Each structure stands twice: as structure tokens, then as C-alpha cells.
Amino acid sequence: MVHTKPAVMTAADFLAATGGVPFVDLDLGHSTLLTAVAAVRRAADPAAFPKLADYLDPAKAQTIFDRHARCHVDVAEYTEFSEAQEERIEQATAEVLTAVPEWTPLFQIPLRFRRMVDDRLSATSALVPQTIYLGDRAFDNATVTLAESLVHEHAHVWLNFVAEAFDLQREGASVNYVLPSGTGGKALRGVLFAAHFAAAAITLHSRTGGRPERLAYLVDYLGGCLATSAGKPDLTEMGALVHARLTKFLDEVR
């Protein structure tokens, strides 16, 4: 990620100005957060584009990341979606926004969708801005619906926005954390991202109903992520604030 903090602003001030944590605080000031992200990117490369809005274009933002990110990532191999898959994405998006209309602005930002050729369900990368990868499994998985996969990856995109301005972990933090699913080798940031996705999916399933086993699993998963990351000294101020907000959310849904 490209980190350039907003001038003279604490993490707490930033969250207050933008209305809280995306997908958790439903009255989020999405326009304020997007403007802040664009400003962070422009500060990293002021002469790259003439308009602030240009920095929110995924392809243009990618050029900023390629030049200024502190590390780089191999882009996942991808191809085009079939027409039927594109229709399924539209249908699943409509399902999500019918259930949680407050999320409508969060689904209307500039995004790139890519069809992964490997066997993963879905993915995003902090170093490939505003890009959601979906595998073929996302369209026929009985446990994780396409709607949940879309919420999962949109949540990652938006928490990445927050982390672009204020990272969630300190430099050099451990990468030895294990998620409740058993996936190891995770950074502390990754644990918070997993907790955040679970909170968003809990809201989705709470609104739609009909999947009590999945909902119960997600509540337990969120609790496990928060227990794993609680009180860690490598959390930044923003990381601690996000953790605290997710802990409050968990208390509300239990």
C-alpha cells in the first residue's frame, strides 16, 4: 500500500470525519473517505493525473502503486467472465443491496472484476487497488454464496482504503498469526481484515435470513479473529480502533 497520512489528523479524527468503519457503521461518509484516499494517492505522486478523481480510477491508481508501494505482488492470472457469470454477479449484487440498501454507495465505486483461473473462491490484494477476483467456485459454492463472496471482497476494498491512510499494524509486525479457519502465516493486518469481512457477512446474513448455521459460524469466526488480535502491541492506533469497533459489533450480535 501507499501510505501518506492526511496532514495533522489522528486515526481517531479520521474515523470520526469519515463516519466510522466501512460495512460496520452503516451511516459511513463514503464520499469523505473516497476523497481522503484520492488525496493520499495524489500526495504520493502529485503530478500523475490532473484531477483528484483520476486517483480513484483502478487502472490509474495501479500506476501509483507500481511506482510507490513499498513492496510488489504478482498479479493473479485471470480471464474474462462468461455472460452468464456477469449476470450472476449483477443478480447477487442486487440481492445484497436489497438486503442492506445502506451499502449501495459502497458498491458503486470504480472497480475491476476479474475471473481467476485457479481454484480459489475469491480474492483481493492491497497492492492491486479496487480489483475483485472471483473464481468459478464462487458461482456454485453451496456453503459460501456469491452474494457473501461479493460482500467479502468489497469489504476488503474498503478497509484497504482506510489502511492506505493509516495502516493497521506497525512496520515489521509478525506474520505468524493463524486464522480461526486454520490458515496460518497471516500478518496482524490480515487477521483484522478477516474479522472485518466476517462482520460484514454477519450483517448480510442477518438481513437475508435462512442461513443460521453460516451465521453462527461467522459469529464464532469473528470472535476468534478478535481474540487472536486483541491487545497486540503491533496494532497501530487505527488498528486498535478498528479492533475496538469490531469488538463492539460482536457484542451487539451475540
Rank of each mutant, 00 (worst) to 15 (best):
H154A: 07
E102T: 09
F139K: 08
L111D: 05
P110K: 04
L159E: 02
H152I: 01
V151G: 03
M116I: 11
G184D: 12
A147K: 03
V128M: 08
G185C: 10
P105V: 04
R170E: 15
V191I: 15
D119C: 04
A123D: 14
V100R: 00
I132D: 03
P105R: 02
P180F: 08
P180S: 08
P105M: 02
A194H: 07
I109E: 10
F107P: 03
L121W: 06
V175R: 13
Q130S: 15
T183D: 12
L146T: 02
P110D: 06
A195V: 03
A173L: 06
D136R: 11
I132F: 08
L111E: 09
T104V: 06
H154P: 00
E102N: 09
G184C: 12
T104P: 01
E102R: 12
T145E: 09
L168G: 06
R120Y: 02
F107C: 06
V144M: 15
H156W: 10
A194M: 09
P180I: 05
T143N: 14
P101Q: 06
P105C: 05
L159K: 02
R170V: 11
I109D: 04
A173S: 15
S122T: 14
A126F: 08
L146D: 04
T143A: 15
V117S: 14
G184R: 11
W103I: 02
E171G: 04
T104R: 15
D136W: 00
L159G: 05
L192F: 04
F113S: 07
N141T: 06
A173I: 01
Q130Y: 06
F161N: 13
F193W: 07
I132N: 01
V151L: 07
H156C: 11
F139Y: 08
L168I: 11
G135W: 01
T183Q: 15
P101N: 07
L168A: 10
G185R: 10
R120Q: 12
H152R: 07
R137Q: 13
A147E: 01
R137W: 06
L188Y: 03
R189S: 13
P105N: 05
A155W: 01
S122Q: 10
F107Y: 04
S174P: 03
E153A: 09
Y133P: 11
E164N: 14
D118F: 00
H154D: 00
S149V: 07
A123V: 11
A155H: 02
A147L: 05
V162D: 01
A165G: 10
G135P: 01
V191H: 05
L179K: 13
H156D: 10
A163W: 01
A187C: 05
